[in-house]
Amino acid sequence: MSRYIRRRLLICIPLLLGISLLNFIIVHLAPGDPADMLIRPGLAPEMIVLQKEAMGLGQPIWAQYGIWLKNILLGNWGYSYATHRPVIAMIGERVGPTFLLMGVSLLLSLLLAFPWGILSGLRQNSLGDRLSAGVCFTLFSTPGFFLGISLIYLFALKIPLFPPSGMYTLGGERGFLDVARHLALPAAALALPGAGVYTRYVRSCTLEVLSQDYPRGARAKGARTFRLLRVHMLRNMMITMVSVIGMEIPPLFCGAVVADRVFAWPGIGKLTMDAIAARDYPVLLGVNLIAAIIILLANLGTDLLYCWIDPRIRYSGKGEPPC
C-alpha cells in the first residue's frame, strides 16, 4: 500500500515540472517586458538595467527558469501587476469558495446520478430509461452559463427563492444559512450537467455488473434487489465510477470558472477573468499553476480511493488499477 502511494507521488513530480515549464514558456510568449510593469516611470536607463539585473532578467533563460522554480517552491509566486499584492495571498483567499462550490456540486451531482443511473440500468430499455437518456443528453449538452442564466431568471427573479449572485448578503450576517442560500443556484448550475454525465456512466456500470455471474448467483440465493445493490454491486461499480469522477474533475473546474462569472461567485474564476482583463500575467500563471495542482491532487485522490476500494491493488502494491 505505501509502495503504491510512493509510486503515485513520484509520478507527480515530472508532471509538475512539465506543467511549470509550460507555464514559464507561456509567460515568455507574453508581449511586454515584466520589468516595465514594475519599474517606476521616469527612471534613468542605467537604473533600469540595474533593476533588470536584480530581477534576474539578464541571465540565460534556463537560469531564469531555475530561479522562478525555486521561488515557486519557496512560496514566492510573484506580485500582481494590478494590485501589487503577493499572488499567493490573492489565490489563497479565492481557493476556499472555489473548493466549496466544486465540492458541493460534485456531491449534488453524485447524489442525483447514483439512484437515477441505477434505476435506469435496472429497467434497461423501458420507456423511463429512454426518456432519462434524453434528459441526460440535454443536461450535458447545455452550456453552463446558459443554464446559470436560466436558473437566475426562474428561481431568483420570477420566483425569488434564492439570491441571484454573490456569496454573502451585503451587510448581512455571514452565517452558514446565508452562504447556503447563495450557493444553491451556482451549485445547481454546475451539478446538473455533471449529473447528466454521471448518470450515463452509472447506468452502464450497472448494466456491466448485472451481466456478471455473481449478482445472478446472489439473486438465486434469494437476495432482494436492495441488498443485491448494497452488498454486491455498489463496490464493484465504485471502481469504475472513481476513475470517471477523476476524469470529470478538470471539466468541473472549468465549469466553476464560468459559474464564477455568471453568479459573481468570489472564486478563482473571477480572479482569472479580472487578471485577463488587466493583463496581469503573474496572477494568471499562479492561477494556472494552482489549477494544475488541484487537478493533480484530485487524480492522486482518485488513485488512493482505488486502493481503498479494491483490495487487489492494495495487496499487490503496484500496477495500474484495473479498468
Binding site: 508532471l15 512539465g18 506543467i19 509550460l22 507561456i26 478538470p250 471539466p251 473546474f253 472549468c254 470558472v257 464560468v258 482569472t272 485577463i276 494568471l284 500563471l285 492561477v287 494556472n288 489549477a291 494544475a292 487537478i295 493533480l296 487524480n299
Partner: peptide, 13 residues
C-alpha cells in the same frame, strides 16, 4: 501534462 491542465484555463491564458 496537457491532460492535467484544466483546458479552459490554459486556453484563457
Amino acid at each position: 501534462i496537457f491532460l492535467s491542465f484544466p483546458l479552459l484555463m490554459l486556453i484563457l491564458v
